[in-house]
Amino acid sequence: MTPTDYEAIARDAGLERVGARPPLGAYLAEMWQRRAFATSLAMFRLQAQVSENRLGLAWIVLRPLLNAALYGTIFGIILPRDTRPDGVAFVPFVVVGVFIFEFFSKSFAEGARSIVGNASLVRSLAFPRMLLPVSHIVQQVLELIPMMLILAIIVIGFGQPITWWWLLIIPALILMTMFNLGIALLAARLTVHVRDLTQVIPLVTRLFFYASGIFYSLEEVLADQADWMLKAAQLNPVHDYITIVRDLMLEGINAPGWMWMVATGAAVATMVVGIVFFWLAEERYGHD
């Protein structure tokens, strides 16, 4: 008995291999077709989160506010005054930093869990996996809207004027969203390969927290250090997004023009690398 040539049968009947990763263009087109899945998932998750807590939606704002209050108090007392930027109100400075950083850290943490944490969904339904990290980013953007409103109220309350410059916050945050998406995609795939990374993510977040100058001015703190240290610290995109938003909202902070270039370059590069890196392993998700 000759062994049956199954491949030839499949070829003759015009069958295609199941689960084959489509080319990038087709993959992105399929994602676009199913975009409603990502946005509805984000909305529903947000609603569920709101209805489970007594204070509901308020927590989205309360959490970073409490963080800001805590860090503001502790570091306001223990750090010397010359670590603060000159001529800037300290409270709005810290609050902007904490709020914008929260957008990064939650995107990073949720993105990293988006495949590992949705294993049952991944194992039971076939859809482009990238929709899961994307839906987490959509959720973060939805949460960012009330946060930015409260932020504006606080900043105005502390006597900062509203200017036309505020409009530029929108493109700045769009760039940051692209950057966050890239980071989320990288983290989503890496945690699938090495589960241990989920243990390290809070540590990495903390590192970014200190390196981004949330409650002190990097420029002041590193003023006496070697020149390259400040240069390196300023190349951190998270620092640049925060500084740009501070520049737009607060008086006395200036983001040099090249920060916009770093912000744009990092956004595009991280997003493209993230998308390709995530797509390359499409067939592996849900395997282990």
């Binding site: 291999r17 689960g19 039971s124 076939a126």
Partner: peptide, 13 residues
């Protein structure tokens, strides 16, 4: 197609 095969293939219409 939810699990990738270690060896062999699955084809479908």
């Amino acid at each position: 197609g939810l699990i990738a095969p270690a060896e062999g293939r699955v084809f479908a219409s």
